[in-house]
Structure formats: C-alpha cells, structure tokens
Design a protein around this nucleic acid. Structure first.
Lengths: 233, 233
DNA sequence: ACCTGAACACCGTTCAAGT
DNA sequence: ACCTGAACACCGTTCAAGT
C-alpha cells in the first residue's frame, strides 16, 4: 500500500486546480502583493501552471477581481462590533459603515475596484439587508431606505478608496499637496469664496480629520433622508 | 528663398514636440479611442515618434491622465446653462452639477479616473469657487460649505462614472443584471428587509431613472447640510 | 537640450495540441 | 473534460547613444 512517491514530501503536492483554489490563491496574492500585482500570469505562477489554465475556471481578469471582492465582503462586521445590538440605530449604522470602510481601507486597491463593481454575492446581499433594517428602524420611508442604502455604501466605498489610496500610493500624496499648494496660493480677488473657505482653520476646506469628515457626511446623509421623507409624504 | 522641400507638402509636417502638442493629441486620442487606448505608445505613434520621446515632457502615464482631466474640466458650464444666473441657488446648483456630470458621462473612463484624481488646475479651482458661492447663497455655514463642496463633487463624479460605465462597457451591464437577478430571487425569510425593498416598484431599490436618483441625492445632501448647520450652531 | 532605437520586464487572451 | 506550450498583440519605462 502507501506507495505515494517520496517526492510528494519534498515539494508540496501541486494542489488540484479548481475555482475555489484559484480564488483562494488570488486572495492570498492580494494580501501580499495588492490588486495591481494580482494578474493572471502571476496567479498562474503561484499555482504552478500556465495562465491559460486559469481560463477554464475564470472568465477573465475582471471576473477574478469580482470574486475576490465578494470574498472580502464576508469579513465585514454586520453587528456593529462592540455595540452588539446596543446603541441607537444611528450609532449601529455608523459602526457598520465604519467596519465596512475599515475592510476596504485595508485593501485600497479593492476599494477602488469596488467603486465600479456591483457585487451580487451572498455577503453583499446580507449587507444590504442589514443596512435596510437599520434605516427602517430609524423611521425612514421605503424610498428613503431603498435609495439611501446605495448612497451610504457609495459614500463609504469612495471614502475608503480615497483614504486608502492616499495612504498607499506616494503619487496620490503628491497630487494632494499639488492641490494644497494651489489652494494656499489662491487670490481673494479672483476666487473670493474659495479664499475664505481655505483660510478658516479646522472648518476650512482642508480641515478636519478623515474620520471626522466621514462621520459628518454620514449624518448629513441621514438628516437629508429624514428631511426628504417629510417632503414627499 | 522658399526652399521648403516638396516632401513637406506630401506628408503633413511633423509637428514639433511640446507639452502642449502632446496633451492636445492626448485629448484627441481620448475622444476617438477612450482612456483605455490612450497609452504612451499609441500617443507616440500618433505624434510620429517613439514612446521614449514623450517622457521629456510628461513624467508618466498618470501625469498624462491628470493633464487630460484638467483639460476637460474647462468645458463645464459654470453659469448654469439656460438659467444664466436666473433661478434659485438650488436650481442653479442642480444645473451646475448636471453640466459637470454631463461632461464626465461623455467620457466615462475619465470619470472613473477623476474619482481618484484630485486635479489642481485653474478650471477645478474656478469650479470650487462657484460651488462655494452657491452654497453660501443658500445660507449654509462655513463648515457646511467647505466640507459640502467635496461631498457634492464626489457624488456627482461617482454617479457620472457609474452611469457612463454602464452605458459604455458591456461587462458592466452583465454585472448589473447579475445583481438584478440576485435581488429578484431573494427570499423574504432570509432577507426580509431586502425583499420588501425589492418589491416596491418605482420607490424600490432598483426603481427610478438615473436622473431622478441623482437629483434626489443632491437634495438629500443639501437638506442634510441645512440640518447639520442647525446642529452645530 | 532634445530626441530616439532598442531593450527590459512585463501584460491578457487565444488556440491548437496534448492527456 | 481538463490542461498547457506557444504565440499574438500589446503595455510602461529606462538608458545609452545620437543630433
């Protein structure tokens, strides 16, 4: 019996190819190298095969990326972390969106991807359901809930993409300070409004921390939903 | 005198290389081929030279894209089109943002780019100044104006990117109908909130036209700004 | 200073041929 | 059915050598 060749011991057995194995290896590659380096060719190399073999299981690069996004959405904490169902609907909603952005900020390249990729996997559906429940609990009308969920997620996704990108890519910081420099040298004569908005400290156009501004924006949206509900009653 | 060789007549004179000429050709290439095909190599070919020559004037591909974005922002109508200063601040703001999105929807790939590229050119600064003026006219406080401008532009940019992408790329429509199918088959037992939001017609989660939803979102933001101003007065 | 040929180090995707 | 070698048609960027 047991006549598995010794070579199996020396080099780890080449894992059988499967969609699951491919997506798993893709997520691992994402974690170590980032989405930019998650290419069909590199992935094939990791799996010890040629790129052509992947096309049996994955339609193309875009489909691969979508599968990876689906996978990551499973790590979002839907229960509001520490709160565990405690706290007002507004607090739990803040916690949920913060967890969502945290996941994406950890993978800025995926955040960028997810701005333009509508997932449809089970994790995304569960996220939608939970968010809708919180908004309904807040007393929003059906339309405000249905349309608002999109807006909240869009906002959270974009913020995560921006923040993560700034953190990750040196080029982005350059662009940022290009803008900061341009704002600083704006003249009160030609851009009166902008000049005032720039020179106003923490309430100015460049003021506040990312977290402050994120929380502020979420409340703006929620208050806007509430006001909108009153208008089309 | 006049001893320009006849060959000049037969083949149009090779235009002198310059940053201006390069960006001009880049915009032309963008219009005909889209951002995806606006590569250093193609651009060089159009300019009848090798790719290496472009690096004398443009730092890299990213800088080229940023320059192209700057260029396009110049075509946004800041005066609110038909309104020409008529109408309430809210109406003019809607008109301005609509013009902004229209420009970006016409070039979906640039819209995608501009979600993650903070321009700092004169056209962007003028846009900021005009928006700030409209918000101030609406009676918003300094913080609401300064932070709100970002939010409005972010929203408009993202919507344009999404809408344009859906219009342009067949793959996006596939993703979309993947999601529509997933939503349609959601069970009331496992996803009660989502189930209700799906089966609610025009006010449902997939209801309304893009324009409806865009306008609704802008008003949500504006109402949210107004509510937020009351809170931290 | 400006320009460029040629090279380096990559890509995604397809397809005929193998097992 | 699954897998793959090899090819096709591209990329961005650098650099030594030319003008």
């Amino acid at each position: 019996m047991s006549d598995a060749p010794v070579s199996r011991r020396q080099r780890p057995a080449k894992p059988a190819l499967s969609r699951e194995a491919i997506v798993g290896a893709a997520v691992a590659l994402l974690r170590t190298e980032g989405l930019e380096r998650l290419t069909m060719r590199r992935l094939a190399a990791v799996l010890d095969t040629g790129p052509a073999s992947l096309y049996v299981y994955v339609r193309n690069t875009e489909a691969l990326h979508a599968a990876v996004l689906d996978e990551l959405l499973g790590t979002v904490d839907l229960d509001g972390g520490d709160l565990e169902g405690e706290g007002s609907w507004r607090e739990r909603l803040h916690a949920l969106l913060t967890s969502y952005t945290a996941v994406l900020v950890a993978f800025p390249s995926v955040a960028r991807l997810s701005v333009f990729t509508r997932p449809s996997g089970p994790n995304y559906l569960r996220l939608l359901d939970t968010l809708l429940g919180l908004l309904a609990e807040g007393g929003l009308g059906p339309k405000q809930c249905a349309w608002g969920v999109d807006l909240l997620l869009l906002h959270a996704t974009t913020i995560a993409a921006e923040h993560g990108t700034r953190r990750e890519r040196p080029g982005a910081e350059e662009e940022d300070s290009d803008l900061v420099a341009a704002l600083a040298s704006v003249s009160a004569d030609t851009h009166p409004q902008l000049y005032r908005a720039v020179h106003r400290g923490p309430d100015g156009i460049t003021g506040g921390t990312g977290a402050d501004r994120f929380a502020w924006a979420v409340d703006v949206l929620l208050d806007g939903f509430l006001a909108s509900a009153g208008q089309d009653a």
